[in-house]
């Protein structure tokens, strides 16, 4: 039998349609694949973004596929040579895109349930694809609770979306910053301080957690204290990835390739994977 092989590493040269500066270090890029084709992604999936001469990196998709247009959004933080270069790009530039990769969130795990989104820092970007999805299909879900924490007020992402979430009656939005500035009037403290006051129907609440590595253990403990069953917790994990297709080995956590089995894992699986969090 002839095996169907693929050229796995060829990017599509996609257009940057719009760029929005979100913070000092984060920008949102709206991207269109060639030929006006849609990416056909699931919330929580990622793409490999590249600029020739600077390399390639995995970036979460922050828009929901329920968006009407064929474009998708990436929120990119300046952290190195490649992302510094991407930040210099303007509308009309081209970037290489491969993907979508990874499992993404399974809508069926969340349908009919109260959804608790817990986002730390730039973790709001991957979660936003799922938040938008649940809001666009509002009737499929019960409560939508968003808990968001950043280090400083100046690092808050998506202020216009946050304003809309705060204005909606059918979305509960809570946020905190680790360190306030003179203008900040909201909560101060780490994100886990927002969890104890929540009133949750624990059996019917499903949590989706994305944040920096240090956040996962403490969030899991806080959710456990709320008696949320392990199986109701989903986490999206970040790892180094070079290929996105289960070959290069960099993203491997024990026997699991994050680019293939993840990045979204049920907490029961996370507990089996000793190196996960």
């Amino acid at each position: 039998m002839e095996l169907q092989t693929k050229d796995l590493y060829n990017p599509s040269m996609a257009d940057i349609v719009a760029v929005e500066e979100l913070t000092e270090t984060e920008k949102r890029f709206e991207i269109q694949l060639p030929g006006d084709t849609a990416l056909k992604h699931k919330p929580g999936q990622f793409v490999e973004v590249s600029i020739f001469g600077f390399g390639e990196a995995p970036i979460s998709i922050c828009s929901s596929p329920t968006k009407r247009s064929t474009t998708f959004d990436l929120t990119i933080r300046k952290t190195g040579r490649l992302t510094d270069k991407i930040h210099l790009l303007t509308a009309g530039s081209k970037v290489g895109i491969r993907g979508p990769f990874g499992n993404g969130f399974n809508a069926s795990d969340f349908e009919g349930k109260d959804i608790l989104f817990i986002a730390g820092g730039i973790g709001l970007a991957p979660l936003k694809s799922m938040i938008d999805y649940t809001i666009d299909k509002r009737d499929d879900f019960k409560r939508i609770i968003i808990v968001y924490g950043t280090k400083k007020p100046s690092e808050i992402l998506f202020p216009s979306e946050i304003k809309k979430w705060q204005e909606r009656d059918d979305v509960e939005f809570y946020m905190t910053v680790d360190h306030a500035d003179a203008d900040w009037k909201g909560n101060v403290g780490v994100i886990t301080t927002l969890i104890p006051p929540l009133k949750l129907d624990e059996e019917n609440t499903v949590a989706a957690v994305v944040g920096p590595p240090v956040m996962y253990k403490f969030t899991a403990m806080a959710l456990k204290a709320k008696r949320l069953p392990d199986k109701n917790i989903f986490m999206s994990l970040e790892r180094r990835m070079k290929c996105g297709v289960g070959k290069c080995g960099h993203c491997q956590i024990n026997n699991s390739y994050v680019c293939q089995d993840g990045p979204v894992y049920n907490y029961l699986r996370v507990k089996e994977l000793e190196e996960a969090i």
């Binding site: 095996l3 092989t5 590493y9 070959k247």
Partner: peptide
């Protein structure tokens, strides 16, 4: 086995 599994990779298999 590893280059055929999941996403068969043409670079190796060719």
């Amino acid at each position: 086995y590893n280059f055929k599994r999941g996403n068969p990779e043409s670079n190796y298999l060719k």
